[in-house]
């Protein structure tokens, strides 16, 4: 029986995909709503209110665009990267690494990938640098208690997939 703390569970990529779809739908709804409003402003334009309608269209289009840009970057794209990463972690071949484990406090954002924290594993005088998904590092952080502890880690492509603190 695997008594390790698993950072990735079966079904997670599908859940992430569903969450991503929800955010993407929100983006589309906001975009469509803004477009409809702007078209309405065009149709309601007359001599007396032309400037007001134009400014309203610019304001609505700008705000909706800002919200959509934010959601596409920090929700949709981020969830897409999480989903890809989770799939790779669940499908990848595991390697067991043992040693005194320390978790870095700083989060590093890898370009076009997930945010990670560095995990340093030391054994027999050798130090090995691994990564852990920053969004899933809390349980490891709590287990290490801010310091260094002897751990056994399951690693997939240099990323921690599961861990167990050894006595």
């Amino acid at each position: 029986m695997n008594d390790k703390n698993e950072l990735y569970r079966p079904g997670e990529p599908e859940r992430l995909k569903k969450r991503r779809s929800v955010w993407l739908t929100a983006v589309c709804v906001i975009a469509a709503g803004a477009l409809v409003l702007c078209v309405l402003f065009c149709l309601l334009t007359g001599t007396a209110n032309a400037m007001r309608m134009e400014l309203s269209a610019i304001a609505v289009f700008t705000l909706a665009g800002w919200v959509d840009i934010y959601l596409l970057t920090f929700r949709v794209a981020a969830l897409g990267r999480e989903e890809d990463h989770a799939r790779r972690m669940l499908a990848g071949e595991r390697e067991t690494v043992r040693g005194r484990t320390e978790l870095a406090a700083r989060t590093v954002r890898i370009r076009k990938s997930i945010a990670v924290r560095t995990v340093t594993v030391r054994e027999d005088g050798q130090a090995r640098r691994l990564f852990v998904n920053a969004a899933r590092a809390r349980s490891l952080e709590q287990a290490l208690g801010g310091g260094e502890r002897m751990c056994e880690l399951d690693v997939v492509s240099g990323y921690v997939a599961a861990f167990k603190v050894l006595p």
Binding site: C38, C42, T45, A50, M53, E54, A57, I58, F61, T62
Partner: peptide, 8 residues
């Protein structure tokens, strides 16, 4: 601003 200025 450019797009809607042009459209209007």
């Amino acid at each position: 601003a450019l797009l809607w200025g042009w459209i209007f």
